[in-house]
Nucleic acid binder design. Structure first.
Lengths: 205, 205
DNA sequence: GATGCCATGTGAAATAATTCACAATGTTAA
DNA sequence: TTAACATTGTGAATTATTTCACATGGCATC
């Protein structure tokens, strides 16, 4: 099975390659892509090996073909709908950020317990009360969730998502979730990240 | 040298331990901390070995002592000031999030190019124009930066930070930065994270 | 006391991730 | 046509990280 780090890098490659494509660039060598993505040429080649795309030794990788190959590998055939729970500062920032970014992933509903935040549309996304979560998720065939609630609300909200059929969660709450192992959870721990930066900026890596 | 993954875990342990301490818990065993943090007991013991704290086989780890040991290990003696560039949705969310969270790390200034956003105080943090960055950072002895600007502005803003003496950057912009190797950069790539979730939720890890 | 129990700390082993290094291949230039 | 060159794809080596497994030691119980 492919590693999660490799998937993150491949996702990054696609983003960078799409930018290059927009600028009119047609092909790229592994060491150039590595320089742009901040890795090594060998790693780029290994990663692309995993998705089953071959370049030519003389031209390198043909960018639009490679983007297509990455998309075949990464994306679902149909697009995947996403729900967001927690319409706070961070939740709104993420709604703004993800709007129209990847056609294959769309945040179709946002939820909050606060009555004042529901029945609105934020960055094109309709807001509902958490009580309606299960109904809305099933109506929209949502299998992915983004959790931007407080630490105290996170475990409960995550369980609601799982009960509603969600299979993967991107968790911004600063605590680990206890969920069935089959649920894929990715934690974004901003506190730990800034402390890491503080530590290594001081001590050197 | 200790790994960055280990530092992130140790930071998480501290947060969890402080919560437990607040609840009145006095001691904890490695396997309990592992369960809460979502790791293995052996890994917890290895991580704590690195910081040089020893527990007792009968009581486990004394929580307040351990928190102190972690802080001695992770934190700088004096506190470290942080600057944030990019007062958009995400920047504001992070200002809200970090306010009064860690006494040792404080966001002392925020910057933006937009005239309408400067000369305000957001979540206790004063906002300046990016033109004043170098001056303000040197006045406040800032060595850490958080980058919440758009992809197109990120490289330039990062270079400004480095020119002003910053040694470590937490980068939320969706592109890798090209900076001198001695600068420590931690990338938080939310796009890659959600695509990872989408991929593994579908395929299984 | 002596004994059993349980958790720690840590070498050693296992596993995972990255890098090396080179045969294979196609292109350019003479 | 042939030689020189640069790059790919990949087995093997290396390095990093995690887990295993057990000697050690303190406490409770008999």
């Amino acid at each position: 099975m492919i590693s999660d780090k490799a998937i993150a890098r491949i996702s990054l490659y696609r983003r960078l390659l799409m930018d290059l494509h927009k600028e009119g660039r047609e092909a790229i060598f592994s060491h150039d892509l590595a320089a742009i993505a901040g890795g090594s040429a060998a790693q780029v080649r290994r990663d692309l090996m995993a998705i089953g795309y071959s370049g030519s030794p003389t031209k390198g990788y043909i960018i639009d073909e490679l983007v297509r190959s990455i998309s075949d590998f990464l994306d679902c055939a149909r697009h995947q709908n996403v729900a967001l729970i927690g319409i706070g500062n961070l939740g709104r920032a993420i709604l703004a950020y993800f709007t129209n970014r990847r056609p294959n992933l769309k945040i179709v509903a946002a939820f909050d317990n606060d009555e004042h935040k529901v029945n609105r549309v934020i960055h094109g996304c309709r807001c509902y009360h958490t009580d309606d979560l299960e109904k809305i998720l099933q109506e929209n065939d949502v299998k992915l969730g983004i959790l931007t609630v407080s630490a105290s609300g996170a475990q409960g909200a995550a369980e609601k998502l799982v009960d509603a059929g969600v299979k993967g969660i991107l968790n911004f709450a600063p605590i680990p979730l206890k969920l069935p192992r089959k649920i894929y959870v990715e934690n974004v721990d901003m506190s730990a990240s800034i402390e890491k930066v503080a530590f290594f900026a001081r001590k050197g890596k």
